[in-house]
């Protein structure tokens, strides 16, 4: 069959065409990646369900019923069954996504901002300042992240904001490391020397020439942290260090449903399944973003 292949026509790269900006190219690349589309679609669905939970959810997430405890999946009126206190599980999963996603995204965003700033500074200044900053952060880095998160939030006490702070502190050293190493690479390139030759101030050089080239790799690394953050947050809640009952949160739900694992295993597994699916989707999307952003090298 003489199928016409969608070859890029030579005209498309001719001189007359205006260049696309870097992010436009990345976006186009992402839209063509089926994995990115699938992962993005799943995430969008989960996020939408969480955000619009008050309007979409079929029941009240706090309304318990002693008679309707641990109903199996597909019971009439309770699509995904009920939990150990007879609350509608679908509703609680939708509401639970709000806190779980919040705890996945907020610490990573905060660590991305703080870590990039510290990393840029340490990497650009170099020398002894860099050494002091990096060695101090290495102390944090030396602990496994789960242990560190548990230790910090244990010290701060349970609660949502404390677990957010704990998770941010866990991620900052990791982001700083990436930002610092990329900054050091970028700093020794000739275009930085050329910018120095132009008499520009260090601030202007960092803003115009360093930041733009460091942000990409750090962003990719941070997207990979989203799933870790969600799992750690769920772990903290599971251990009783995060959100307190009766607040719906996936990790906490996994904990409280643990006792039902023998009587009603499918219902008990649902929060864990959601954590799993969400973090996998974040990871796949991060991988796609990484390859989409790789076009320049």
């Amino acid at each position: 069959m003489s199928a016409t292949l969608p070859l890029p026509s030579p005209v498309a790269v001719s001189a007359a065409q205006p260049s696309r900006s870097y992010w436009a190219v990345v976006w186009r690349q992402l839209r063509r990646d089926p994995m990115a589309l699938a992962a993005g679609g799943v995430l969008l669905l989960i996020i939408a369900a969480a955000v619009f939970a008050p309007w979409l959810a079929p029941a009240d997430p706090y309304k318990a019923s002693m008679i309707k405890r641990l109903l199996p999946i597909g019971s009439s009126g309770f699509l995904l069954g009920t939990d150990e206190l007879g609350r509608d599980l679908l509703t609680r999963l939708m509401y639970g996504g709000r806190l779980s996603l919040l705890m996945g995204v907020v610490p990573v965003l905060a660590a991305f901002g703080i870590g990039t700033a510290i990393g840029l500074f340490a990497g650009y200044v170099g020398g002894k300042v860099n050494m002091v900053i990096m060695r101090v952060l290495d102390v944090f880095y030396a602990f496994p992240s789960v242990l560190l998160a548990v230790a910090i939030s244990g010290a701060l006490g349970p609660g949502l904001s404390n677990s957010l702070i704990a998770l941010t502190l866990v991620f900052v050293p990791q982001v700083v490391r990436v930002a610092e190493s990329v900054t050091i690479q970028v700093r020794q390139l000739d275009y930085i020397e050329a910018a120095r030759m132009s008499g520009a101030s260090a601030f202007s050089i960092i803003r115009v020439h360093v930041l733009g080239n460091v942000l990409g790799p750090v962003f990719v690394y941070a997207t990979g942290l989203l799933s870790v953050s969600m799992i750690l947050a769920s772990g903290l809640s599971f251990l009783g260090l995060g959100v307190k009952p009766p607040e719906p949160e996936w990790g906490l739900m996994l904990n409280t449903l643990r006792s039902a694992i023998y009587s009603n295993p499918w219902v008990a597994a649902l929060p864990g399944l959601l954590i799993f699916v969400t973090s996998i989707a974040f990871n796949l999307l991060a991988d796609s973003v990484r390859s989409a952003m790789d076009i320049r090298r």
């Binding site: 260049s19 000739d190 275009y191 132009s198 520009a200 101030s201 733009g212 320049r296």
Partner: peptide, 26 residues
Amino acid sequence: MVFQDSFASLNPRLTIAETVAYGPRV
């Protein structure tokens, strides 16, 4: 100064007009 490595001496995130205009703007 003009450097040997023509690629490493240009910021990949700036268009070439922006690169040339950077110094005068400073």
